[in-house]
């Protein structure tokens, strides 16, 4: 994973709650065996409507997705954060996320940060009123800031460290080789093996 410290850019206001991963990236695009190339299919069905926010030229090039509660519910497909990243987004701001989606974002280096409803509402309105408004999502300082405001966010400390350092999580776990072997040695003999 590439290290990520802060993201500055314009916002895409996706003013909907409970956006599920089937909408983020529909199933017909899950057949790729690569981690890339999903961007053009982000919100594929919703994009068919001309006035869908992602189609509006004033939001071209936005890199911060601002959206409603429970974002990313449903399927565990990591293709969802891959598609969001691939389409140029580097951060998401929402009141809450589905658990698996949030974990997937962290592994992908996509800054999924949580702010209270009222602050997300402010960002949403700002993006709608002035699509050129810039915000910075700062992982180091744990704040989302813009012209005249700075909102503090909380984030899992371990996930934060990993993203800031661009750490290879597998490498981190492999350091505990001896603990893993010790655990394995004391597993109950009746536990099933597949072969």
């Amino acid at each position: 994973m590439q290290a990520v410290k802060r993201v500055t850019g314009r916002m895409l206001p996706l003013d909907r709650a409970d956006v599920d991963t089937d909408q983020i990236i529909p199933k017909q695009f899950l057949k790729r065996i690569e981690r890339t190339g999903f961007g053009p299919f982000l919100f594929y069905d919703w994009r068919q409507a001309e006035d869908f926010v992602l189609n509006r030229p004033e939001h071209d090039g936005a890199s911060v997705l601002v959206t409603g509660a429970n974002f990313g519910c449903g399927s565990s497909r990591e293709h969802a954060p891959w598609a969001i990243r691939d389409a140029g987004f580097r951060a998401i701001v929402a009141p809450t996320y589905a658990d698996i989606f949030k974990a997937n974002c962290y592994k992908t280096g996509l800054l999924a940060v949580t702010l209270p409803d009222s602050q997300v509402r402010h960002l949403m309105d700002l993006a709608l009123e002035d699509p050129s408004a810039q915000v910075t999502v700062d992982l180091e300082k744990q704040e989302v800031r813009g012209d005249g405001f700075a909102y503090r966010f909380e984030i899992d400390a371990f996930a934060r460290e990993n993203m800031l350092g661009g750490l290879d999580e597998i490498g981190l776990v492999e350091r505990h080789q001896s603990s893993i072997s010790t655990y394995e040695a004391q597993r109950s003999a009746w536990l099933p093996a597949v072969k």
Binding site: E78, I100, N104, T108, E169, I170, V173, H176, E184
Partner: peptide, 20 residues
Amino acid sequence: FGIGTSEVELVLATQCLPQT
């Protein structure tokens, strides 16, 4: 519980998963 593809890779490699 369900996991994402990066976690699948982690479990394949280590048989372990860091969880809060």
